[in-house]
Amino acid sequence: MRPFRYERPATAARAVAAAGGEAHFLAGGTTMVDLMKLDVMRPERLLDITQLEDGRYDFIDWDGKSLRIGALTAMATLADDDEVRRRVPMLSDALWLAASPQIRKAARIGGNVLQRTRCAYFRDTSYAQCNKREPGSGCAALDGGVTRGHAVLGTSSACIATYPGDFAQSLIALDAVVEILGKDGPRAVRFAELHRQPHSRPDIETTLEEGDLIVAFSIPDADFPRSRYLKVRDRESYAYALASTAGALRMDGDVVADIRIALGGVATVPWRAREAEEMLKGSSISEDGLERAAEAAFAGASTTEDNAYKVDLGKRTMVRTFLELARMEG
């Protein structure tokens, strides 16, 4: 990789003050260091935030039904948390089914949600065309590339790169809030507003501003024992989702009182299927109803020859998730 400076700010405030331009935060490094080795990311300074203020941002706190998680919590720590597993299994599932034990131990959840795409044309700088890497250079994937893993939802003519993560699907489904420390002080944004669809600028992936540091996620209503994350992939472990669903269900007798649906592996950003939720709310769970809702969830899909299967697979994954949740004890 290229030479860079390594710094370890003592506090979050100092880290934020130092960040911006070619100075990037470094937590677990599982994306950053990987992409530096590939010369895709070329930071001149890395600000190591793993030691900030004695673990101040490494916590899992329940307050009634609300859950707050520090952004420097390791994936493995949150995945293994007994109370999280019991009260909101979809959060734990999504982490358990991601990456490998080594990566889960190193990676922190703040960085996890910012994981960058696995699009081969983005990750290999020898391809001249990549609008995400070099704005305006074109898209090799759309120009005759291999697109089996690419997105079908939220795409644009500039980019169809898939958002690769799992955990973010659970956060968006749970109406999580992102707590940010910025150059102008702390603020909070809805998780659903964190990621940007590619449109004409796929290089701008989030709404974060220069220097913004994610310090925590909060979920005002996190009690969803009847929830899960179903990940369909080419092998049983250590593979990205071809299609996944983060699903949560609250029943009132036979009637759906609350339902949360987020889709992974198929979209350019963490994807909430709100229209499908609306269709299912207030009715009973049936295979037909789920299939109609899944149809609606993928109504806006745009496909290539290679990834057309993802529409069918995505629908099936969503339907299976809720058929299985419906069978669970309420």
């Binding site: 090799a140 005759g144 590339g145 089996r148 080419d234 092998r235």
Partner: peptide, 29 residues
């Protein structure tokens, strides 16, 4: 079930040239 090197037809280049995306069975399989 897993192994295949994928090739870009237009560019005649291998695209899954790493062992995260060139799949072989893992223990769980």
């Amino acid at each position: 079930l897993h192994e295949a090197t994928e090739i870009d037809h237009k560019r005649a280049r291998y695209v899954n040239d790493n062992i995260a995306e060139y799949l072989i069975p893992v223990n769980a399989d």
